[in-house]
Design a protein around this nucleic acid. Structure first.
Lengths: 180, 180
DNA sequence: CGCCCCATGTAAGCAGTTACATGATTAC
DNA sequence: GTAATCATGTAACTGCTTACATGGGGCG
């Protein structure tokens, strides 16, 4: 259900094709959401038949034809109404936490390896986010409205990756103490 | 798939019924995972037919009969192997972030209300986690192994709820500046 | 010659939610 | 009497993943 609203949110700035939604969203909604192209095409169809978006067929000569989707006024209305609803707080659902929870079952050095790999992924994300912030959001107050809100979600990414790194380090300290 | 491992992780300390798994997990795995009782009964059946857990029927006179599940040695072996595998980093998938992303579409005071409600939920969790830490984990070094690992996942919860609160405050400051 | 980019889908299946169902005991 | 706790499920459905499919153009 939320994916439909994520798609609508991605269509607020300008109309997009399913292909763009599934690949070019890098740098905005991809900070906190993902979906396969199959699922996105499906949701676009269902949004279309609900009248929340409308498709326009565009023929291309050197590339395959495509369908450009734009949000309708009904879609905008529904999106606004949904935004104003209370959001419930989802659980983390990160497999790494299950692994740590049951971590006493395996040797500490194995867990450290698993943790280090996760840490490296988190660090890579943080670097990417910080790079994006430096490049596009260096002076937030001069940005147009929609980009200022995008920046807020990027900020969330930066704050959280840092929190992850802190937790990884704290956890790693304990695991190291179990080896020596 | 991960739910099966979450169930196995919950069964490491002692055998449990589906009912206990779906309700009494409060205070451990519930910090970062959830599931309906229907789904848990389904997964227990599938784990049973795979030989990763085994069920024992227990008749009770004053309560309904129950099935107590314990992990088998095969289940333990598989859980250990899974823990040692690299964990990929999932996206946040929190609807609040979609709402903020498209936040320029609604009046700032509406968004502040939505944010405040989320913030209150986060704050309540943090208080709960801190209370649990004070009560059960005040001197971690004297704890048995499995509880020390449980404590690590609780620490993650505490660190993350604090990070959420920081982000909420940062975001609220910006939203307030849009009203005045 | 093979691979990547563009572009959109079908089909099968698994994972998870929501609604419905039963029924005894204990506590207010 | 009515609500909560204990205890386990079926049925229908939605959401999402994985595998498979097509086909032209550009690049090395």
């Amino acid at each position: 259900m939320s994916l439909q609203y994520a798609i609508l949110a991605a269509l607020t700035s300008k109309p997009k094709t399913g292909y763009e939604l599934s690949s070019k969203i890098e740098g905005s909604i991809a900070y906190f959401w993902n979906a396969s192209h199959q699922q996105i095409y499906k949701e676009l169809k269902s949004l279309d038949s609900a009248g929340w978006v409308s498709a326009r067929d565009v023929s291309q000569t050197e590339k395959p034809d495509k369908k450009v989707y734009r949000m309708t006024s009904l879609g905008l209305k529904e999106l606004k109404a949904w935004i104003a609803e209370e959001a419930e707080t989802p659980p983390a659902k990160d497999a790494l936490l299950i692994k740590i929870f049951a971590g006493h079952l395996v040797p500490a050095r194995i867990l450290i390896e698993v943790l280090n790999k996760s840490r490296a992924q988190r660090m890579a994300r943080l670097k990417r986010y910080e790079e994006i912030e430096r490049t596009y959001f260096s002076s937030p107050s001069s940005l147009p409205d929609d980009l200022r809100f995008q920046h807020l979600t990027l900020r969330r990414g930066i704050i959280f990756e840092k929190a992850w790194l802190n937790w990884c380090d704290e956890t790693r300290e304990y695991l190291k103490s179990r080896i020596h």
